[in-house]
Design a protein around this nucleic acid. Sequence first.
DNA 1: ATTCGAAATGGAACCGGTTCCAAATAAGCG
DNA 2: CGCTTATTTGGAACCGGTTCCATTTCGAAT
Lengths: 330, 330
Amino acid sequence: MEKKLTIRDIAELSGVAKSTVSRYLNGGCVREETGRKIKKVIEAYHYEPNVFARLSAKNSRIIGLIVPGFDSIVTPGLVEVIVAYLKRYDYTPLIMHTGNDLAEEIKSIERLTGMNVDGIMVLASSVTKSHEAAVEKANIPVLFLGQRYCQGTSVINDDYHAGLELGRYLGAKGASHVAGLWVSEQDLAVGRERKRGVQDGLKEFGIEEMEILETSFFYQDAVKTAESLFAREVWPDTVVCATDRIAEGVYKVLYQKKARIPEDVSVTGFGDYETSELLRPPLTTIRLDLENWGEISAEIMLQMVQGKPVSKLQINSFALIERDSVAKRR
Amino acid sequence: MEKKLTIRDIAELSGVAKSTVSRYLNGGCVREETGRKIKKVIEAYHYEPNVFARLSAKNSRIIGLIVPGFDSIVTPGLVEVIVAYLKRYDYTPLIMHTGNDLAEEIKSIERLTGMNVDGIMVLASSVTKSHEAAVEKANIPVLFLGQRYCQGTSVINDDYHAGLELGRYLGAKGASHVAGLWVSEQDLAVGRERKRGVQDGLKEFGIEEMEILETSFFYQDAVKTAESLFAREVWPDTVVCATDRIAEGVYKVLYQKKARIPEDVSVTGFGDYETSELLRPPLTTIRLDLENWGEISAEIMLQMVQGKPVSKLQINSFALIERDSVAKRR
DNA sequence: ATTCGAAATGGAACCGGTTCCAAATAAGCG
DNA sequence: CGCTTATTTGGAACCGGTTCCATTTCGAAT
């Protein structure tokens, strides 16, 4: 029932000025004895400073984290890692959710800059000119995850080469009629680079054409797209999916059609969700090292915040995980 | 590059006092003409007020949302729904992440109360006395999700009856040697009520004993626990899992052992993840209506914030989803 | 035109912190 | 022990908003 304590209360209770308490909290000059006194009061009363009242502070020790949504496995996993890292270094993460809406993404950047957070990490779905403008205005370090940001710093997956490896693998397996369930090209990393990699890999084996069906990151959309694909007379022998989630949609439809994977159709994913090995047959996919990705990103963010120099582009590693969803053909 | 605009700038640019701008923004008394003038300036300069500077405001239109982690499917899904709802009513959700740590949970409550958010929603893993103390001190509406909070308001799943229905179902199917992979009793809703329901349901069919193996919400832990279970000589004929995620762990181990589900072992889950129908065989489980749960919760939260009366306890509905992971025995 | 109450406005104080600066205290040194 | 310098400290101003209250303006009624 007692009112929330403010720094003034603590100051009075320990018989010093509030500036002294503030200094104590932020590691400034305070005599050891004074510090002890303040510490005792703070602990006795469980005082917690109001993080958002640091209006005029140089640094708030808050890092904004803008995410599209929590519907995939990648986002929550990555957030998990990043949050843990930031906390370890005593930064408070502030998660903003855009619901896969580009305009919201921009707005979130603006909003966060207005809150004088120390830095912003954007798990962007694409990097538009509005993004760049918002970042310009922001005047604080902004780190893009997953999408390359030429004007600044980003930590991305090596989507092109991952795609390339997958394309080559499929080519070597003798795929011939390949369809891709993909997301919009607006998403440069996943929608474009990843796809281009696959196409180039296939080309090396003489497969010039990969039919693309556009879908979204959502499971239900993937199911619908897959349904339309397999409603046709002739089926592809291989379906490449932009993400594991989309591959799950394909699995569902193929189960319904009583088609056999991979005998009738080979399927591949991207991401290696925890459950992808549980699919029957286990899904062949590209593993993105979330742990590594998150750690690197958070580390770079903190370095940027502390004004240290960082390399403009960090690339997260990947690995092809071969399971049983692709058949040797011909 | 231009500096961030403040309310003072807007006031000067439109030739009024900043109190007037503030009033305009918050729907107070302003002449139509004045309003138009201010509006023009705000739009011309893309002014966005600093949400966190409302230190002395009655209400910040911010709702704190405390979640344990994003590793399950339930949490991200629920957050998704809640966030969408809150935004629709022009509230800003502030997501705090506790990493399944009870102490962090308390701290988050305290921290959020210090930020004068309008209300807090806690997706709690349990309700301890520390929680109650923190809520007491908070002095703002706090809504618990998933765990019953006797001193206040909560929206929970009907874990007992859901468990009961599942237990009866298994009893009717002729289960006899039942093992449960469960989470700690600290979690009253899942760890206790849900389990008790299953046990009571089984008892109606004369099955007095259900062996419990304690595990956690994490996939990897579930795998380990399942491994230890199936390393034994004699196997249960039915494994009941506290969540679908845990069931996935069981599937993995049974796949490795080349055991047949449900012929050798029946398996059930709880939650009905999107992918649960993709498991082979598709998982029989209890569906929790996330959509409904989230909507109800957000709605109640807003009503609490607006000082309207709400019923202390709301119960989310469930449904038994019968698929193919349980065999008829005897 | 005058009066009066309601609506609109500006100014000042405040929210809970941080930071700057000057004053007070402690420490170092000859 | 006195003087200089470095370290601590308190006080005031500030951050970007909101709110209270007194004052001005408006509009309608007399």
